[in-house]
């Protein structure tokens, strides 16, 4: 029995110390208990849990705390659907707040096939780097550089670079707005999800100048303005854009009616389709 004594001693010592430490922690937890508002946990569960930071807070839990504290309205979460926001508002008994779901749109249609390449760029494949060096490879100084800065920033994988052009998949985009800041050319904007058509051009240059470097620019011919109701489009210099603040946004059939000569007036779905079909053509040709 004696040779086992040392094991028993070791076992007993560990058991005693373990039990003592366990008790100390147990008691400390009771004494130093911090009352956390149970509503914070509830709201955190109701939130999408993407932790994207689109609301400006550190994460969903942090946002939940600010909602409970009354600092933010529930609809400040750009990812949550109408139902989720309503559920949170109901749980807390607060005003719903006017909620408008938004999606990001890249306002450029000039992919590899449409836009002339001006210079050969061999640097780091990043839009911000490229825009610093002689404005990047593309002919249009306002067009999408297509080097994935926004796609890398997107936590939801909603931006795809097709033919050297960033395209937002509207069904994947939740409108957190992370990509908006990354674009060195400010091409990405958040627009209401109800907006069906967009004008995929951001260049303020004159029509003739744009036509030299791109085959799908907005040349401000105003065909769409004339075809639409008043106030649905804005003309700013040599660029027409959809007025997203308008009471009634232009319907999808405006594309047919306006007969845009360059084809920069498109619905979001059609835009994705065109780019994808061009990708396929190119793949077969090669």
């Amino acid at each position: 029995m004696e040779e086992y004594g040392i094991y028993i001693a070791a076992f007993a010592a560990m058991a005693i110390i373990g039990a003592v430490l366990g008790c100390i922690i147990g008691i400390a937890v009771k004494i130093f208990k911090v009352e956390v508002d149970p509503r914070i946990e509830l709201v955190t569960e109701l939130l999408p849990g993407a932790n994207c930071g689109g609301c400006g807070k550190a994460g969903c839990a942090d946002f939940a705390k600010s909602v409970v504290d009354g600092e933010n309205a529930p609809n400040k979460c750009p990812v949550a659907s109408q139902e989720q926001v309503a559920a949170i508002a109901q749980a807390l008994g607060v005003e719903l707040g006017e909620s408008m779901k938004k999606v990001a749109v890249v306002f450029c249609g000039g992919d590899k096939n449409q836009e002339k390449v001006q210079t050969l760029y061999n640097g780091v494949s990043d839009c911000i780097s490229a825009s610093l060096i002689a404005g990047g490879p593309k002919g249009c100084a306002y067009g999408c550089l297509g080097m994935s800065s926004c796609a890398r920033a997107c936590p939801f994988g909603a931006i795809e670079i097709i033919n050297g052009l960033a395209v937002v998949h509207p069904n994947l985009c939740v409108g957190c707005g992370k990509c908006v800041d990354t674009c060195p050319r400010d091409l990405i904007k958040l627009v209401p999800v109800d907006a069906k058509v967009h004008i995929y051009c951001s260049s303020p240059e004159k029509g003739a100048v744009k036509m030299k470097v791109c085959s799908v620019p907005c040349i401000a011919c105003r065909k769409c303005v004339k075809a639409a109701e008043e106030g649905q489009f804005d003309v700013k210099g040599f660029l027409v854009g959809v007025n997203y603040d308008a009471e009634k946004l232009p319907e999808a059939d405006i594309v047919e009616k306006a007969k845009c000569p360059t084809g920069c007036l498109l619905t979001a779905d059609k835009h994705v389709k065109i780019e994808e079909s061009e990708k396929k053509d190119k793949g077969e040709a090669a």
Partner: peptide, 30 residues
Amino acid sequence: YLNVTTDLKFLKIVLFIVVIAALVQLVEVV
């Protein structure tokens, strides 16, 4: 009862792990 005399130096690594983990827990709670 066993008449074994020993020190417990050989337990130090196991014990230190337990004590440090418990200590950090405690500090966090406090």
